[in-house]
Write a protein that binds this DNA or RNA. Structure first.
Lengths: 234, 234
DNA sequence: AAAGATATAGACCACATGGTCTAGAAAAGG
DNA sequence: CCTTTTCTAGACCATGTGGTCTATATCTTT
């Protein structure tokens, strides 16, 4: 396929560094397959340009004063124009990468990367793919796994998890409490008397070292009571 | 650095396909920098070999009968030997990749990939990095973003999210409720009278269409009340 | 057989919670 | 300027909730 026959893709650039902005525009213009429909040094202006020109892709700097890049991604996606966002940043901050990808960035490239790689990233994203350079995806995954390790840590330290002291019946009662059901309701569901439920509930409080049902429910949720059932099935 | 001076890394292979198993062993032996300390066609045997030889890295087939690969990763990590797991699979199943990475696989490679890439993946993982080929990381991120889109769907459909009807003060009160605090406690924290708190709480109940504080707290949690604050700060 | 844990259930009481109504002051919006 | 919303707060009452104690039947464990 010859280039002249390929429709140029509309690109928009947002970066508070004007030098950089112009540099990228030159680069993309030289490439010939892109049509830089606008440049902006802040997000609000950028949003207006997006509405006006409806570019296929936006290169968005993450490290900007005032409104930061993350907020920018959110606001762009709220426009509902299927605008793809390729995040640009000077640093490989794992947390920033993680959050950007989480809220829907189609890629993330460092400003220090070779221009050929930037071009490649843009093309991949335009083709509907998600592009994260190996170095960044590696950092992303470290962060990703770390966050899950922490999440599982509480739940799997069964020695310290007070939930493990509950009897089967108490777990049943607690599960109903986590659905916001009253004594009477629990009694009906379990076919036992209301006072029995109260006894169970009081025992639960003792074991979980809490004073009321709300705290018990919160403890249960925060310590993986509900997710036990969900985790390995879903 | 010459190869002879480099200590060979201990590698263990687990794959129910014996042909493939032997093939990889040959490949790694030819390479010269690896020491294949054992091969196994099922996870239980593999676990014993890991305990015995303590390899730095295990290449683990994901698609095995009986115990599947995911379970294998979990059990290997439970041995607490810092064994790195590189997942092997015939397919680029996004869900499988996602779950494998979630529970701590250091990488994921397809069996169809060139042997040079497998070698590279092993070396990267041995160097403490996480390796996911571009094609797979791309699939991973699609899945990743999809799951967050679904999660945010309820929270961001503000029309239907009753939480959006709450006033600022009511949100403050609700936030304290989600910490399991009593009327009196809330009153002290906000420097208002207890009856005022009751008024707010009752208004909250009306707006959230619930009957008691436990249900209110549950509604708040399930509809992204807490994550609002966490999401953009942490 | 005895001891311990569990599930059941009653009585009694204090108080926290929820429902409803009223109402003034302050702030926001038109 | 007036209206609406929000925040404040009191009174009153019904009831749900939590604390404590006692007690029986069952079941497991020693």
């Amino acid at each position: 396929m010859r280039r002249e026959f390929k429709k140029k893709s509309k690109v928009l650039l947002i970066d508070d560094n004007y030098e950089h902005l112009v540099g990228i525009r030159e680069l993309l213009n030289l490439e010939g397959t892109f049509d830089v429909v606008g440049i902006a040094t802040n997000i609000n202006v950028g949003l207006n340009l997006i509405k006006k020109y409806q570019p296929e892709i936006v290169l968005l700097d993450m490290n900007m004063p005032e409104k930061d890049g993350l907020q920018g991604i959110i606001e762009i996606s709220k426009l509902d124009l299927d605008t793809k966002v390729l995040a640009l940043s000077g640093y490989d901050d794992a947390d920033l990468i993680f959050r950007a990808m989480k809220i829907g960035a189609k890629g993330y490239v460092l400003k220090t990367m070779a221009s050929a790689q930037l071009i490649y990233a843009i093309e991949e994203v335009l083709n509907g793919k998600i592009y994260l350079p190996l170095a960044l995806s590696s950092r992303f995954f470290e962060y990703f796994q770390q966050s899950f390790r922490e999440e599982n840590a509480k739940q799997e330290s069964e020695e310290e998890n007070l939930l493990s002291y509950l009897t089967q019946r108490e777990e049943e009662v607690l599960e109903l409490l986590t659905q916001g059901i009253t004594y009477k309701g629990v009694a009906n569901k379990l076919f036992i008397s209301e006072t029995t439920v109260k006894t169970h509930v009081n025992n639960i409080f003792q074991k979980l070292q809490v004073n009321d049902r709300t705290q018990a429910v919160l403890y249960a949720i925060n310590n993986g009571f509900l997710s036990k059932k969900i985790k390995l099935t879903a």
